[in-house]
Design a protein around this nucleic acid. Structure first.
Lengths: 336, 336
DNA sequence: CCCGCCGCTGAAATGGATTTCATCCAGTTC
DNA sequence: GAACTGGATGAAATCCATTTCAGCGGCGGG
């Protein structure tokens, strides 16, 4: 490996001078030139480990997401990247796969590699432990999902409100036995969206409301989970006539399950929390709660960058608004 | 920050002994215990920078992909992860966004951070420079796209053959003016798939073949690119009656463009290289060249792991087979 | 009883870049 | 001409974990 020493020797200066050339110290122009030439000739690339070890900071931030195959998170990742791009920071993405063990490993890597900051969409509220990072003063921003109790900035959407608006829309469209397929227990987004659903039903005070939670299913935020939850609902003696699905991928599974038994929206109402990917190809078009995934990422990154720059303002929680986009899949229970 | 020195002091031993406890040297059981207790009490986590600096190796590998929003690459990423998972390596993902500048930065990071290895789906054949990594002895595997001239292992699919089979299928189905929307020039996958298309047309020796390249368009492997390329094709005096689209996202755009003018498959034949994401929702169902995206990632990772373990076997190029999956979108030009 | 070996331990060297501190020198200022 | 300022420079300390090396004590073999 070619080190700063080698360059120094080749250029006839001390390592300190070479370092100054690369990091902007006071060096006479002619020496700058000879150092640059020597570096280029030798193919010198500074060892970032040594640098980070010495300076106690790094120019890499980690983004930890629970499902890299979900376009919601990849869009969020783009938002993070684009914001980081404007500084000199690089983003590395880690996929926790909704697995708290994997997630813990990545958090350890981020800590151990002294990364400049971490943005995390937590796999779990209780088990995701941001404590060590926070204790070491590493800036952390929670995005989409709230972390249990860690003292960090957070950016999320109005899950509860969105869930309530969505469910109310189904009620107004005339559906009466409204099911909810939500995510795993322990994820804040699952709980909040479900809470919104329940609130809307309570507000309705009729048949739908009395059903209690018999139409509620917990699944895993993935296609397969949505499919089997929907199958399960369809097998009930009195199956639901509409379903509020708490994320985009589970909606795809639910639609598959409906297709299997020959029922299609809007005969059975389908409403997705989060747009289904490449929705333009889906018929009938799907009513969805639109999520600002890209802005979620961008905002989280901006918050993180501020912290990395040393802002000491009090912790923030930013909540972005969702928007119900009404389309064909919730036109009403009457066939047509 | 709590260092190995602090732990040593707390446990009443030397730093060397603490290190041995964590890395499996010979230490008496009672000392092991007291070191572990001290470490736990202080919340010690080893500084991976210092470790990597000293040992000259790291337990992180980088995966550099050109489009994180393309499910093909995220599936590939899952394959890499699952393979890496079985060892103690962590995978960090970098999104080059088909931008050779961004890609270069990530390659520099991988080099500078002394990462254990790199898997890269190159943004370009000419401009992607793997030289520095190879020169420093960092194991590198090219996946999906071949790098220009670097001496690295490679894993890809039979792009040319797949493109030829696909185009021949369209010919046999009765289409005569077959267009091709391929990716950017400079990407090996674009070129190879196009070469397959041309070969099939040459083999046909009729009207279709004489068209030359008038039905060929280069786009950017994204939805938007596919859409505008298709619009462009549809605006021709004699528009094509079928299109072979060289990747999944561009197919989505092409379908959108067809929809705009009220033409749908199989009236216009549509064949996608690579399955469209969540194809189960798309009507009519799409004929596609199925790509083993997950296995591509897994194989690349396994190759990389071997190199990291020090295998010195000669460079390998693994080519995985694609499979044409015939569905409704290429049923033939006759309306019905 | 002595030698040699082995297991355990800590002091010190190591990896590579940054940064402090002291030094040197040229240019000012009185 | 003495004192002072400030820019440029290199020697050496620093960041933290790993690893070599030498030393120590105990044990088995001769």
């Amino acid at each position: 490996m070619v080190t700063i020493q080698d360059v120094a020797r080749a250029a006839g200066v001390s390592p300190a001078t070479v370092s100054r050339v690369f990091n902007g110290g006071n060096v006479t122009p002619e020496r700058v030139l000879s150092v640059q030439q020597a570096a280029a000739a030798l193919g010198f690339a500074p060892n970032r480990l040594a640098r980070s070890l010495r300076t106690q900071r790094s120019s890499v931030i980690a983004l930890i997401i629970p499902d890299i195959e979900n376009p919601f998170f990849t869009s969020l990742a783009r938002g993070v990247e684009d914001a980081a791009q404007r500084t000199s920071l690089s983003v590395v993405l880690c996929n926790s796969d909704e697995d708290t063990d994997k997630e813990r490993r990545y958090l350890e890597v981020a800590l151990g590699e002294q990364m400049a900051g971490v943005i995390v969409a937590a796999a779990s509220q209780d088990e995701t432990d941001l404590g060590p990072l926070v204790a070491r003063g590493v800036p952390v921003v929670a995005v989409d999902r709230r972390p249990g109790d860690a003292e960090v900035d957070a950016v999320s959407v109005d899950d509860r409100h969105g869930g309530e608006v969505a469910t109310r829309h189904l009620l107004r469209a005339g559906y009466r036995r409204i099911a909810c397929i939500t995510g795993p227990e322990g994820a804040s987004t699952s709980e909040e969206r479900l809470a919104g659903y329940r609130a809307a039903l309570r507000g309705a005070r009729d048949e739908a409301a009395t059903a209690g939670d018999i139409y509620v299913r917990h699944a895993d935020f993935r296609v397969e989970g949505g499919r089997s939850a929907m199958r399960d609902l369809l097998a009930m003696p009195e199956p639901p006539d509409a379903v509020f699905v708490a994320n985009n991928l589970m909606t795809i599974g639910a639609l598959d399950a409906l297709e299997e038994v020959g029922r299609t929206p809007p005969g059975v109402g389908v409403l997705s929390f989060g747009d289904v990917p490449w929705a333009s190809l889906v018929r009938p078009s799907l009513t969805a709660v639109e999520l600002p995934s890209y802005d979620l990422g961008r905002t989280a990154a901006e918050l993180l960058l501020q912290r990395i720059d040393g802002t000491t303002s009090p912790l923030q929680t930013v909540v972005l608004r969702t928007k119900l986009q009404v389309r064909e899949s919730t036109a009403g229970p009457v066939e047509g």
